[in-house]
Computed example of a mutant assay.
Amino acid sequence: MTATNALVPAGSNALTLGFSGSLGNLDAYISAVNRLPMLTHEEEVALGKNLKEKNDLKAAEVLVTSHLRLVVSIARGYLGYGLPHGDLIQEGNIGLMKAVKRFDPDQGVRLVSYAMHWIKAEIHEYILKNWRLVKVATTKAQRKLFFNLRSHKQGLDAMSPKQIDELAKALDVKREEVIEMETRLSGRDIALEAPSDEEDDKFSPIAYLSSDNMEPTKVLEAEQVVRLQSEGLETALSKLDARSRRIVEARWLANDDGSGATLHTLAEEFGVSAERIRQIEAAALKKMKGALAAYM
C-alpha cells in the first residue's frame, strides 16, 4: 500500500467505491475522491438509519467515502501552516469518520454540515500538536487567534497598530498576544544540522538543542526555582509573626528530608491544642503563598 492509499478509510473496497487502479500519489487520490458520487438527502437519511439502528458498517463506509471530497476541500485551507496536504487530509478523514459514527439522521441536519465541525477540529488538533507554535495556542481564545491571524494579515507586511487593536478586540485577546503570535508566525524555520562536516558546523542549532537542560524554558524554570528558594522564601517568612514563622520553619524547613516537627510537639511548646497549631500553620502558609505570587 502506498502512503496515499492510506488516505482511503480502512476496510473500504477501492474498486466498488469508484477508485480505479493504484492511488500512487496525492493528485490521483484527490482526482478519485472527486469522482465519487454524492448522496441525495433521502439516501443519506436511509444510510444513517441503517448505521444507527442496525450498526450497518457498509452504510458507514458509503457515508464516509461520499464525503471524502469535503475533507480534501477543508484540508486545502490549512496548507499555510507548512504541513503536508496528505497528512492534513488523513487527519480530516479521521474527523469525518468520528462524525459519521455520531451522526443522527433524525435531527434533520445534513451530514456535510455536521461533519465540517469534526473535520476541522481534528485538523486543528493535528496542527497544534505538530507545529512549532503549539506552546502559544493554549487557550480557546489563543487557538482562535492562531487560526485566524493569517486571514487578517495583508501580504507579508507587519500588521499596523490599528489592525492589531481591531483583531485583539474581535477575538477577545490581548494586543500583546496578537503581536507575539504574528512575530512567531513570521519567523522562518532553520535547519538543525548544517549541510557539511566542517568544524564550524559544531555550532549549528542541533549542538545546543541536544540537551533538555539547555532548552530556554528549562533554564528559566531553574532560575525561578532558585529565586523562590532564596529571596522569595525569605521575603514570605518575613511577613509572618514570630510564632507563625517558628511553626512553619519547624514543620517544613527544619530538615531536608521533610521530617519536621509534629503538631503535638509544637502544641506542647506553645501551650495550645494541636488543632490551633494546624490553624496557625494554614493561615501562615496562605499568607506566604500571597507573598510568593510576586516571584512566580
Rank of each mutant, 00 (worst) to 15 (best):
N148P: 00
P195N: 07
A170S: 15
R175L: 15
R227Y: 05
T138C: 07
E180T: 09
T217S: 13
R245K: 06
F146V: 00
E215C: 10
E198R: 15
I164E: 01
L220M: 13
I179C: 10
R150N: 08
R132E: 06
R132F: 13
E166L: 09
S211M: 08
A222L: 08
H152E: 01
L145A: 00
E177Y: 04
S151A: 14
A170G: 09
N148W: 03
V173N: 04
R245M: 01
P205N: 05
E125L: 10
R132L: 12
T139M: 14
G232A: 05
R246S: 10
D200F: 10
F146W: 04
A194H: 08
A137V: 05
R132V: 09
R188G: 06
T235S: 09
F203E: 11
K153R: 13
D200M: 06
W131T: 06
A242S: 12
L209H: 11
E221K: 07
R245T: 03
D212L: 15
N213Q: 13
S196L: 13
P161R: 06
K144M: 15
L128N: 01
F147W: 01
Y126H: 10
D189R: 14
P216N: 13
I206E: 11
Q163P: 01
L128A: 03
A236Q: 00
T217H: 14
